[in-house]
Structure formats: C-alpha cells, structure tokens
C-alpha cells in the first residue's frame, strides 16, 4: 500500500547506517546515528508497528543519542576511521 514510502525509508536507513559508521568524528557519527533511528522509526511506522516505532523514537532519537553524546562528551570526539 505504501511501499514507496517504505522503500525510500529503507534506502535512507541504509545510507544513514553507512554514513554513521564512516563519519569522520564521533559527534557526527552520533548525530547521524540519531537520524538513522528517525528513519528506522519511519520505516516501522510505515510497516504499521506503532509501538515499536514509538519506542524507537523515544529510545533511538532521544535517549540513545543523549547517552552517546554524554559519553563522547566525557571521552573524545576523535576517531581514526
């Protein structure tokens, strides 16, 4: 029914994933990982998994990113790859 949205979201998810692991510094990686979670959330919504999407929005976008930022804040932003 809404497979176009799903497909697009899927592509964006994969792009985000690849970008997140190739980001040149960790702050960017964390931010892109946040976007990844957003996209994943959209993907799940499009699949009709509202509860999962809700959780992912709360976790992935909010808390995970905040935790990761906190960790990076307390360590270092530098990454070699």
């Amino acid at each position: 029914m809404i497979w176009e949205i799903k497909l697009l979201a899927l592509i964006l998810v994969i792009v985000c994933a690849i970008a997140a692991i190739n980001a040149k510094d960790l702050l960017s990686a964390a931010v892109i990982f946040g976007i990844y979670s957003f996209m994943m959330c959209v993907q799940w919504l499009a699949m009709g998994a509202v509860d999962v999407a809700f959780t992912e929005a709360a976790i992935g976008a909010g808390i995970s990113t905040a935790l990761m930022l906190a960790a990076i804040f307390r360590t270092s932003r530098r990454t070699k790859d």
Binding site: A57, A58, G62
Partner: peptide
C-alpha cells in the same frame, strides 16, 4: 508518536 518525536528531536 509525532508529538513524542518532536519532543525527543528537540532534546537531542
């Protein structure tokens, strides 16, 4: 969900 999303986006 949209509401939660907006909130958490803001926080992030």
């Amino acid at each position: 969900i949209a509401l939660a999303y907006a909130m958490l986006n803001f926080i992030a």
